[in-house]
Design a protein around this nucleic acid. Structure first.
Lengths: 128, 128
DNA sequence: ATAGGGGTTCCAGTCACGGGAAGGTCAAGG
DNA sequence: CCTTGACCTTCCCGTGACTGGAACCCCTAT
């Protein structure tokens, strides 16, 4: 299976697939002409990676998760820890973004948005 | 005023201050010895930039906001548009993160987190 | 023979800095 | 006067996870 077919099936750009090989997440075989020859197992791994990335896991988390997935002797506790840590980071990020949003919402609401120069947004940014 | 004093007052790292000069956000004078000589106006601008960055504005947004701040003939509508666009991006990001969080929370809750290999998190990532 | 649509590698750029090296400057102490 | 140590300077590399583009190879159909 060639890369564009795999891209279609996994909904990952060819560039991303090559990158994942470069950093050792997958190791597709090669045809005599040098083209990558993807097996079903490669496609499966890429789909796994795509879903993990869609959940916001870092590449290194994905590497860990994939290793756990392929380890029959894994403990689900190890998987859960990775997921829980990631979830904690997401909650932090959410809190930070909510804080920004609340401040911005307030400022935007206060601003007349007309032709005059007076602007509470700039006043806030320039406060002493 | 030397850079470390400015860093202290603005709560920005010296590296960041040098970077902001490099990309043209500020233009501090220089002493005869080559040291940057910051004026109060530079400190003021840096504080402005620090607050804008803390609200998540990109560097380019900051450049725009600073230009508007220094333009007496600005229209508050221009400021408001920058802020509203940024707010829209934040709302998008929030929705995305909430979606990730909801999925992850569910999966983490389902996972036993013990010594056994069975794991709904991996099952979900590997679903066909 | 050629045209096109694959594939390949490699290099550069993104964003907003941070780390660290190599070296100049300044004030204080011996 | 010399040294020490804390400043300051520039310069280059690395970050994460790709994306764009150049230059080139391969395969099939006309």
């Amino acid at each position: 299976m060639n890369i564009s077919e795999v891209a279609r099936r996994t909904d990952l750009p060819p560039k991303t697939i090559r990158y994942y090989e470069e950093i050792g997440l997958i190791r597709p075989a090669r045809d005599a002409n040098g083209y990558r020859a993807f097996a079903d197992s490669d496609v499966h791994k890429l789909a796994f990676l795509g879903r993990a990335r869609a959940l916001g896991f870092s590449i290194e988390d994905c590497r860990t998760l994939l290793a756990l997935y392929e380890d029959d002797a894994r403990a689900s506790a190890d998987v859960k820890r990775v997921a829980q840590d990631h979830l904690d980071r997401i909650e932090e990020k959410l809190a930070q973004l909510r804080s920004m949003r609340d401040t911005l919402t307030h400022l935007v609401h206060e601003c007349a948005g007309d032709n005059r120069p007076d602007c509470p947004i700039l006043q806030d940014l320039a406060r002493d």
